[in-house]
């Protein structure tokens, strides 16, 4: 199947007093029609910037964003506008994502007005249809955002994204600000909508459990790069990159795995203005060797559809559990193969 969206070597640098903040630094991935690509990583890894650059809220520094065969990266706003309906967004904060001075009906009517669709009465019907689609009653149209609960507001945000019948929706931490009991409602809604409407999602989140639940494939980002990308099944059954493993280890699980000692990742995220040389994760990686400090890892295919950017990926993929010190030694021995391959 041809991809709906193909991102190729995307860079987005923000100018800064001391240099450039390399928020996104060489990211490539594809999204097929109707699938969900999860994008996980910690704050500052650039995942939100990826989402916003694809939406062309930012102009990319370099790289291609190919939407249905057309590169939208270099387009000016006027040329971009006709293409905007295909990609919509659902935001994190259900408070600031709705205009506090507009009634819900007006907010949902806006897309139709902008695109000159239908007459006033038809638009009203469409608004009601949208509200029903996201599980709200027609009476919500006369309310102001502050009269709704957080969950209801997020439903309105989703309805607005659906109005133009997009092919892709970027969900940027779309359920992170919601209470636990409401979060499940919204996740189910997103999944149901995808099934009936065939929309693709780029699902950006820091919450691994949620990402696993909604995604077909998942990309893990660290400091502006994708370190591992695979199907959700592959990634959870066989995480390879040391960062992916650390992330999985750190995220709390229910029920708690009794007696399992967590391998806690040490240190903090390095600065994206002056990222570490070689592999960016080497400063915090337990398996880092000399080559990691010097040479940027190339992408290694662990299986069809499962790629990892790590010098020791091959060795790590064979080590079943987290390697002990001995295995670590084996790992160190194996680096020559990888290094010479470069």
């Amino acid at each position: 199947m041809t991809p709906l969206l193909s991102v190729e070597d995307l860079h987005k640098h923000f100018p800064d007093r001391v240099g450039a903040l390399r928020a996104v630094d060489g990211v490539s991935f594809q999204i097929k029609p109707g699938e969900t690509l999860g994008l996980v990583g910690e704050s500052g890894c650039g995942k939100s910037t990826v989402g916003r650059t694809i939406l062309r809220l930012y102009k990319p520094t370099s790289g291609r964003i190919v939407l249905e065969g057309r590169d939208i990266a270099p387009l000016q706003e006027s040329a971009l506008r006709p293409l905007r309906r295909d990609v919509q967004m659902v935001f994190q904060d259900p408070f600031s994502s709705l205009n506090p001075r507009s009634r819900i009906g007006r907010i949902l009517e806006e897309p139709f007005v902008v695109w000159g669709e239908g007459r006033a009465r038809d638009r009203r019907d469409q608004v009601v249809a949208l509200l029903e689609r996201v599980g709200l009653g027609a009476e919500a149209a006369d309310r102001y955002p502050h009269e709704l609960s957080g969950g209801q507001r997020q439903r309105v945000g989703i309805a607005r994204a659906l109005a133009l019948k997009p092919k892709l929706i970027v969900c940027d931490e779309a359920v992170s600000a919601l209470d636990v009991s409401v979060r499940a409602q919204i996740i189910n809604l997103l999944v149901d909508l995808q099934r009936t409407l065939g929309i693709a999602y780029l699902f950006i989140s820091h919450d691994l459990a949620v990402v696993e639940h909604v995604s077909n494939r998942v990309a893990v980002m660290y400091l502006g790069r994708i370190v591992e990308i695979a199907s959700a099944d592959q990634l959870w059954s066989n995480p390879i990159h040391p960062y992916t493993r650390a992330l999985f280890d750190a995220s709390p699980k229910l029920p708690a795995a009794a007696g399992q000692k967590r391998a806690v990742l040490e240190g903090d995220l390095p600065s994206a203005i002056d990222p570490p040389s070689g592999c960016r994760f080497h400063t915090r990686c337990r398996f880092a060797t000399d080559v990691c400090r010097r040479v940027e890892p190339i992408v290694w295919q662990a299986a069809p559809g499962h790629s990892v950017a790590c010098h020791h990926a091959e060795a790590l993929s064979m080590a079943e559990a987290i390697p002990t010190a001995q295995q670590n030694g084996i790992l160190k021995g194996s680096r020559h193969d990888n290094a010479s391959a470069l």
């Binding site: 636990v180 009991s181 409401v182 979060r183 499940a184 409602q185 996740i187 189910n188 999944v191 459990a209 949620v210 696993e212 639940h213 909604v214 099944d233 959870w236 059954s237 699980k253 229910l254």
Partner: peptide, 20 residues
Amino acid sequence: LGSLPKPRAAGRSRDRLTEI
């Protein structure tokens, strides 16, 4: 507890979460 996503068995399609 029901509304929390649970790890799924490999290859199985995702279940709906239990909503409150």
